[in-house]
Nucleic acid binder design. Structure first.
Lengths: 159, 159
DNA sequence: TTCGGTATTGATATATTATAACAGGGGTGT
DNA sequence: ACACCCCTGTTATAATATATCAATACCGAA
Protein backbone atom coordinates (compact mmCIF):
# COMPACT_ATOMS: atom_id res chain seq x y z
CA UNK A 1 0.00 0.00 0.00
CA UNK A 2 1.35 3.40 -0.89
CA UNK A 3 -1.27 5.87 0.28
CA UNK A 4 -2.31 6.86 -3.19
CA UNK A 5 -4.66 9.29 -1.49
CA UNK A 6 -1.82 11.64 -0.63
CA UNK A 7 -0.16 11.34 -4.04
CA UNK A 8 -0.87 12.80 -7.41
CA UNK A 9 -2.77 10.30 -9.44
CA UNK A 10 -5.24 10.12 -12.26
CA UNK A 11 -8.18 10.76 -10.05
CA UNK A 12 -10.78 10.59 -12.77
CA UNK A 13 -9.67 7.07 -13.58
CA UNK A 14 -9.47 6.29 -9.87
CA UNK A 15 -13.10 7.30 -9.40
CA UNK A 16 -14.30 5.49 -12.50
CA UNK A 17 -12.74 2.21 -11.55
CA UNK A 18 -13.91 2.49 -7.95
CA UNK A 19 -17.47 3.20 -9.04
CA UNK A 20 -17.33 0.23 -11.38
CA UNK A 21 -16.08 -2.01 -8.62
CA UNK A 22 -18.88 -0.72 -6.38
CA UNK A 23 -21.48 -1.48 -9.01
CA UNK A 24 -20.06 -4.93 -9.54
CA UNK A 25 -20.24 -5.53 -5.80
CA UNK A 26 -23.84 -4.47 -5.61
CA UNK A 27 -24.82 -6.54 -8.61
CA UNK A 28 -23.08 -9.59 -7.23
CA UNK A 29 -24.72 -9.25 -3.86
CA UNK A 30 -28.18 -8.15 -4.89
CA UNK A 31 -27.85 -4.69 -3.39
CA UNK A 32 -29.51 -1.71 -4.98
CA UNK A 33 -27.32 1.24 -5.77
CA UNK A 34 -30.16 3.72 -6.12
CA UNK A 35 -29.64 7.28 -7.39
CA UNK A 36 -29.17 8.85 -3.96
CA UNK A 37 -26.80 6.12 -2.89
CA UNK A 38 -24.86 6.25 -6.10
CA UNK A 39 -24.54 10.02 -5.98
CA UNK A 40 -23.56 9.89 -2.33
CA UNK A 41 -20.77 7.49 -3.15
CA UNK A 42 -19.63 9.70 -6.01
CA UNK A 43 -19.53 12.72 -3.75
CA UNK A 44 -17.54 10.85 -1.14
CA UNK A 45 -15.12 9.56 -3.75
CA UNK A 46 -14.73 12.90 -5.48
CA UNK A 47 -11.99 13.73 -3.05
CA UNK A 48 -10.12 11.50 -0.67
CA UNK A 49 -11.52 13.42 2.22
CA UNK A 50 -13.81 12.83 5.13
CA UNK A 51 -17.16 14.53 4.72
CA UNK A 52 -19.67 15.16 7.48
CA UNK A 53 -23.22 13.89 7.03
CA UNK A 54 -24.55 17.43 6.90
CA UNK A 55 -21.96 18.56 4.37
CA UNK A 56 -23.02 15.64 2.27
CA UNK A 57 -26.67 16.50 2.78
CA UNK A 58 -25.99 20.03 1.57
CA UNK A 59 -24.49 18.65 -1.62
CA UNK A 60 -27.37 16.26 -2.19
CA UNK A 61 -29.82 19.01 -1.48
CA UNK A 62 -28.26 21.28 -4.15
CA UNK A 63 -28.92 18.50 -6.60
CA UNK A 64 -32.50 17.96 -5.52
CA UNK A 65 -31.80 14.59 -4.03
CA UNK A 66 -33.30 15.23 -0.63
CA UNK A 67 -33.28 17.84 2.06
CA UNK A 68 -33.67 16.07 5.38
CA UNK A 69 -31.01 14.41 7.55
CA UNK A 70 -32.38 10.89 7.20
CA UNK A 71 -31.67 11.04 3.48
CA UNK A 72 -27.98 11.44 4.10
CA UNK A 73 -27.81 9.03 7.01
CA UNK A 74 -29.67 6.32 5.18
CA UNK A 75 -27.42 6.55 2.18
CA UNK A 76 -24.35 6.52 4.41
CA UNK A 77 -25.63 3.56 6.40
CA UNK A 78 -26.19 1.64 3.23
CA UNK A 79 -22.74 2.39 1.89
CA UNK A 80 -21.02 1.63 5.16
CA UNK A 81 -22.87 -1.66 5.61
CA UNK A 82 -22.07 -2.59 2.03
CA UNK A 83 -18.41 -1.81 2.64
CA UNK A 84 -18.43 0.94 0.02
CA UNK A 85 -17.70 3.68 2.50
CA UNK A 86 -16.28 3.97 5.99
CA UNK A 87 -17.05 6.06 9.00
CA UNK A 88 -14.13 7.90 10.50
CA UNK A 89 -14.97 7.73 14.19
CA UNK A 90 -12.45 10.33 15.25
CA UNK A 91 -14.16 12.92 13.04
CA UNK A 92 -17.74 11.71 12.93
CA UNK A 93 -17.35 11.86 9.20
CA UNK A 94 -17.43 9.56 6.22
CA UNK A 95 -15.13 8.60 3.41
CA UNK A 96 -15.53 6.53 0.26
CA UNK A 97 -13.79 3.18 0.18
CA UNK A 98 -11.16 2.88 -2.51
CA UNK A 99 -11.10 -0.88 -2.55
CA UNK A 100 -14.70 -1.95 -2.23
CA UNK A 101 -15.45 -5.57 -1.98
CA UNK A 102 -12.31 -6.78 -0.39
CA UNK A 103 -13.57 -7.83 2.99
CA UNK A 104 -11.18 -5.74 5.00
CA UNK A 105 -10.44 -4.31 8.40
CA UNK A 106 -9.28 -0.91 7.32
CA UNK A 107 -6.98 1.49 9.09
CA UNK A 108 -6.84 5.17 8.32
CA UNK A 109 -4.32 7.96 8.13
CA UNK A 110 -6.19 11.19 8.68
CA UNK A 111 -4.66 14.57 7.94
CA UNK A 112 -5.82 17.23 10.37
CA UNK A 113 -4.71 19.87 7.91
CA UNK A 114 -6.73 19.03 4.84
CA UNK A 115 -8.93 16.24 6.18
CA UNK A 116 -7.57 13.87 3.56
CA UNK A 117 -7.87 10.25 4.49
CA UNK A 118 -5.73 7.37 3.31
CA UNK A 119 -6.84 3.83 3.77
CA UNK A 120 -4.41 1.11 4.79
CA UNK A 121 -4.90 -2.51 5.66
CA UNK A 122 -4.71 -3.98 9.15
CA UNK A 123 -3.84 -7.54 9.81
CA UNK A 124 -6.80 -9.31 11.44
CA UNK A 125 -5.27 -9.65 14.88
CA UNK A 126 -3.18 -6.52 14.66
CA UNK A 127 -0.32 -5.84 17.00
CA UNK A 128 -0.76 -6.14 20.72
CA UNK A 129 -4.46 -5.73 20.68
CA UNK A 130 -5.19 -9.11 19.15
CA UNK A 131 -2.93 -10.73 21.70
CA UNK A 132 -4.51 -8.87 24.58
CA UNK A 133 -7.96 -9.80 23.36
CA UNK A 134 -7.06 -13.45 23.10
CA UNK A 135 -5.48 -13.45 26.52
CA UNK A 136 -8.58 -11.86 28.02
CA UNK A 137 -11.03 -14.11 26.19
CA UNK A 138 -12.45 -11.10 24.39
CA UNK A 139 -14.08 -11.70 21.01
CA UNK A 140 -13.37 -8.87 18.59
CA UNK A 141 -16.13 -8.12 16.10
CA UNK A 142 -15.07 -4.81 14.67
CA UNK A 143 -12.00 -2.69 14.99
CA UNK A 144 -11.33 0.98 14.59
CA UNK A 145 -7.79 2.00 13.77
CA UNK A 146 -7.23 5.63 12.98
CA UNK A 147 -4.13 7.77 13.09
CA UNK A 148 -4.36 11.54 12.99
CA UNK A 149 -1.49 13.72 11.93
CA UNK A 150 -0.17 15.65 8.98
CA UNK A 151 0.15 14.47 5.41
CA UNK A 152 3.29 15.36 3.46
CA UNK A 153 1.73 18.37 1.77
CA UNK A 154 0.36 19.83 5.00
CA UNK A 155 3.66 19.32 6.80
CA UNK A 156 5.20 21.81 4.42
CA UNK A 157 2.56 24.48 4.63
CA UNK A 158 2.42 23.99 8.38
CA UNK A 159 6.14 24.07 9.11
CA UNK B 1 -1.42 -6.98 30.16
CA UNK B 2 -4.28 -9.12 31.32
CA UNK B 3 -7.37 -6.98 30.96
CA UNK B 4 -8.00 -6.65 34.64
CA UNK B 5 -11.12 -4.73 33.67
CA UNK B 6 -12.92 -7.91 32.68
CA UNK B 7 -11.73 -9.88 35.70
CA UNK B 8 -12.74 -9.96 39.31
CA UNK B 9 -10.40 -7.81 41.28
CA UNK B 10 -10.30 -5.75 44.43
CA UNK B 11 -11.92 -2.79 42.83
CA UNK B 12 -11.89 -0.60 45.90
CA UNK B 13 -8.12 -0.93 46.06
CA UNK B 14 -7.92 -0.44 42.30
CA UNK B 15 -9.76 2.87 42.56
CA UNK B 16 -7.79 4.04 45.55
CA UNK B 17 -4.45 3.47 43.93
CA UNK B 18 -5.53 4.99 40.65
CA UNK B 19 -6.81 8.11 42.39
CA UNK B 20 -3.55 8.37 44.28
CA UNK B 21 -1.57 8.09 41.08
CA UNK B 22 -3.77 10.76 39.53
CA UNK B 23 -3.20 13.11 42.43
CA UNK B 24 0.52 12.50 42.27
CA UNK B 25 0.46 13.30 38.57
CA UNK B 26 -1.38 16.54 39.12
CA UNK B 27 0.87 17.59 41.95
CA UNK B 28 3.96 16.83 39.93
CA UNK B 29 2.74 18.76 36.93
CA UNK B 30 1.10 21.70 38.65
CA UNK B 31 -2.41 20.75 37.57
CA UNK B 32 -5.38 21.44 39.78
CA UNK B 33 -7.60 18.49 40.58
CA UNK B 34 -10.56 20.58 41.69
CA UNK B 35 -13.67 19.07 43.32
CA UNK B 36 -15.62 18.70 40.07
CA UNK B 37 -12.64 17.19 38.29
CA UNK B 38 -11.84 14.88 41.13
CA UNK B 39 -15.40 13.67 41.45
CA UNK B 40 -15.66 13.24 37.70
CA UNK B 41 -12.62 11.02 37.73
CA UNK B 42 -14.03 9.02 40.63
CA UNK B 43 -17.29 8.50 38.78
CA UNK B 44 -15.47 7.37 35.66
CA UNK B 45 -13.29 5.01 37.64
CA UNK B 46 -16.15 3.60 39.71
CA UNK B 47 -16.75 1.09 36.96
CA UNK B 48 -14.58 0.12 34.06
CA UNK B 49 -17.21 1.39 31.70
CA UNK B 50 -17.59 4.11 29.14
CA UNK B 51 -19.89 6.87 30.32
CA UNK B 52 -21.48 9.52 28.12
CA UNK B 53 -20.93 13.17 28.99
CA UNK B 54 -24.61 13.58 29.79
CA UNK B 55 -24.73 10.49 31.98
CA UNK B 56 -21.81 11.93 33.85
CA UNK B 57 -23.51 15.29 34.07
CA UNK B 58 -26.57 13.66 35.59
CA UNK B 59 -24.41 12.12 38.28
CA UNK B 60 -22.63 15.38 39.00
CA UNK B 61 -25.92 17.16 39.08
CA UNK B 62 -27.34 14.78 41.70
CA UNK B 63 -24.41 15.74 43.86
CA UNK B 64 -24.86 19.46 43.35
CA UNK B 65 -21.68 19.81 41.34
CA UNK B 66 -23.19 21.51 38.34
CA UNK B 67 -26.13 21.24 36.04
CA UNK B 68 -25.02 22.48 32.63
CA UNK B 69 -23.20 20.62 29.85
CA UNK B 70 -20.04 22.73 29.98
CA UNK B 71 -19.46 21.52 33.53
CA UNK B 72 -19.13 17.96 32.33
CA UNK B 73 -17.26 18.76 29.15
CA UNK B 74 -14.77 20.96 30.91
CA UNK B 75 -14.00 18.34 33.49
CA UNK B 76 -13.67 15.69 30.80
CA UNK B 77 -11.43 17.88 28.68
CA UNK B 78 -9.18 18.47 31.61
CA UNK B 79 -8.94 14.80 32.47
CA UNK B 80 -8.37 13.74 28.89
CA UNK B 81 -5.68 16.35 28.32
CA UNK B 82 -4.03 15.35 31.57
CA UNK B 83 -4.08 11.71 30.50
CA UNK B 84 -6.31 10.74 33.40
CA UNK B 85 -9.20 9.69 31.19
CA UNK B 86 -9.73 8.70 27.59
CA UNK B 87 -12.40 9.34 25.04
CA UNK B 88 -13.78 6.27 23.32
CA UNK B 89 -14.38 7.59 19.83
CA UNK B 90 -16.51 4.70 18.71
CA UNK B 91 -19.02 5.44 21.48
CA UNK B 92 -18.60 9.16 22.01
CA UNK B 93 -18.07 8.28 25.62
CA UNK B 94 -15.40 8.53 28.27
CA UNK B 95 -13.52 6.16 30.51
CA UNK B 96 -11.12 6.62 33.40
CA UNK B 97 -7.50 5.74 32.77
CA UNK B 98 -6.19 2.94 34.93
CA UNK B 99 -2.54 3.76 34.47
CA UNK B 100 -2.36 7.52 34.63
CA UNK B 101 0.93 9.14 34.04
CA UNK B 102 2.51 6.62 31.81
CA UNK B 103 2.70 8.50 28.56
CA UNK B 104 0.90 5.95 26.49
CA UNK B 105 -0.86 5.34 23.23
CA UNK B 106 -3.72 3.28 24.53
CA UNK B 107 -5.81 0.72 22.71
CA UNK B 108 -9.21 -0.38 23.90
CA UNK B 109 -11.32 -3.50 24.04
CA UNK B 110 -14.93 -2.38 24.21
CA UNK B 111 -17.73 -4.75 25.11
CA UNK B 112 -20.93 -3.95 23.26
CA UNK B 113 -22.86 -5.96 25.84
CA UNK B 114 -21.97 -4.20 29.05
CA UNK B 115 -19.98 -1.25 27.73
CA UNK B 116 -17.00 -2.35 29.78
CA UNK B 117 -13.71 -1.07 28.45
CA UNK B 118 -10.29 -2.62 28.91
CA UNK B 119 -7.18 -0.65 28.18
CA UNK B 120 -4.21 -2.22 26.46
CA UNK B 121 -0.97 -0.77 25.24
CA UNK B 122 -0.07 -0.18 21.61
CA UNK B 123 3.44 -0.11 20.34
CA UNK B 124 4.29 3.33 18.98
CA UNK B 125 4.47 2.35 15.34
CA UNK B 126 1.84 -0.29 15.66
CA UNK B 127 1.28 -2.94 13.04
CA UNK B 128 1.02 -2.02 9.40
CA UNK B 129 -0.15 1.47 10.06
CA UNK B 130 3.19 2.75 11.23
CA UNK B 131 4.81 1.29 8.16
CA UNK B 132 2.22 2.72 5.83
CA UNK B 133 2.58 6.11 7.45
CA UNK B 134 6.32 6.07 7.10
CA UNK B 135 6.09 4.98 3.49
CA UNK B 136 3.67 7.78 2.73
CA UNK B 137 5.61 10.43 4.60
CA UNK B 138 2.69 10.89 6.99
CA UNK B 139 3.49 12.16 10.47
CA UNK B 140 1.30 10.51 13.10
CA UNK B 141 0.40 12.67 16.07
CA UNK B 142 -2.35 10.71 17.74
CA UNK B 143 -3.81 7.29 17.21
CA UNK B 144 -7.14 5.74 17.96
CA UNK B 145 -7.23 1.99 18.32
CA UNK B 146 -10.49 0.48 19.47
CA UNK B 147 -11.89 -3.00 19.12
CA UNK B 148 -15.56 -3.68 19.74
CA UNK B 149 -16.87 -7.09 20.59
CA UNK B 150 -17.98 -9.20 23.53
CA UNK B 151 -16.22 -9.68 26.81
CA UNK B 152 -16.07 -13.17 28.31
CA UNK B 153 -19.05 -12.61 30.60
CA UNK B 154 -21.27 -11.23 27.85
CA UNK B 155 -20.35 -14.03 25.47
CA UNK B 156 -22.02 -16.41 27.87
CA UNK B 157 -25.20 -14.48 28.45
CA UNK B 158 -25.39 -13.74 24.73
CA UNK B 159 -24.85 -17.27 23.41
C1' DT C 1 -51.12 -9.52 -14.92
C1' DT C 2 -52.25 -8.87 -10.42
C1' DC C 3 -51.19 -9.55 -5.78
C1' DG C 4 -48.55 -9.25 -1.73
C1' DG C 5 -44.42 -8.60 0.60
C1' DT C 6 -40.16 -5.94 1.18
C1' DA C 7 -37.10 -2.20 0.43
C1' DT C 8 -36.86 2.54 -0.33
C1' DT C 9 -38.07 7.28 0.03
C1' DG C 10 -40.43 11.56 2.05
C1' DA C 11 -41.40 14.20 5.90
C1' DT C 12 -41.83 15.67 10.73
C1' DA C 13 -40.16 15.63 15.03
C1' DT C 14 -36.84 14.88 18.43
C1' DA C 15 -32.72 12.86 20.71
C1' DT C 16 -27.86 13.08 21.61
C1' DT C 17 -23.37 15.08 21.69
C1' DA C 18 -20.68 19.29 21.93
C1' DT C 19 -19.21 24.22 21.89
C1' DA C 20 -19.41 29.50 21.94
C1' DA C 21 -19.51 33.37 24.63
C1' DC C 22 -19.49 36.16 28.53
C1' DA C 23 -19.88 37.36 33.42
C1' DG C 24 -18.31 36.47 38.09
C1' DG C 25 -15.09 34.52 41.82
C1' DG C 26 -10.85 33.39 43.97
C1' DG C 27 -6.20 32.72 44.46
C1' DT C 28 -1.25 34.32 43.53
C1' DG C 29 2.51 37.27 42.85
C1' DT C 30 3.97 42.08 42.82
C1' DA D 1 -4.42 47.07 46.22
C1' DC D 2 -3.78 45.53 41.57
C1' DA D 3 -3.39 42.74 37.71
C1' DC D 4 -3.40 38.35 36.06
C1' DC D 5 -4.89 33.80 35.24
C1' DC D 6 -7.58 29.92 35.96
C1' DC D 7 -11.79 28.04 37.17
C1' DT D 8 -16.84 28.15 37.55
C1' DG D 9 -21.81 29.53 36.44
C1' DT D 10 -25.07 30.43 33.02
C1' DT D 11 -27.40 31.13 28.70
C1' DA D 12 -27.71 30.00 24.20
C1' DT D 13 -26.87 27.38 20.20
C1' DA D 14 -24.32 24.25 17.05
C1' DA D 15 -23.45 19.73 15.21
C1' DT D 16 -24.43 14.94 14.88
C1' DA D 17 -27.89 11.32 14.73
C1' DT D 18 -32.27 8.63 15.19
C1' DA D 19 -37.46 7.40 15.77
C1' DT D 20 -41.62 7.17 13.53
C1' DC D 21 -45.12 6.89 10.20
C1' DA D 22 -47.02 7.49 5.62
C1' DA D 23 -46.35 6.94 0.70
C1' DT D 24 -44.19 4.82 -3.15
C1' DA D 25 -41.42 1.69 -5.98
C1' DC D 26 -39.64 -2.79 -6.96
C1' DC D 27 -39.77 -7.80 -7.27
C1' DG D 28 -41.11 -12.36 -7.21
C1' DA D 29 -44.94 -15.68 -7.03
C1' DA D 30 -49.38 -17.12 -8.35
Amino acid sequence: MSAIEFSDHDHAACMRSTMQAAEAQCAARGLRLTPVRRRTLEILLAEHRALGAYDLLARLSEEGLGTQPPVAYRALDFLVKAGLAHKIEALNAYVGCVQPGEDHAPAFLICRGCRSVAEAETKPAQSRLGEAARAAGFRIERSVVEAEGLCPACQESDA
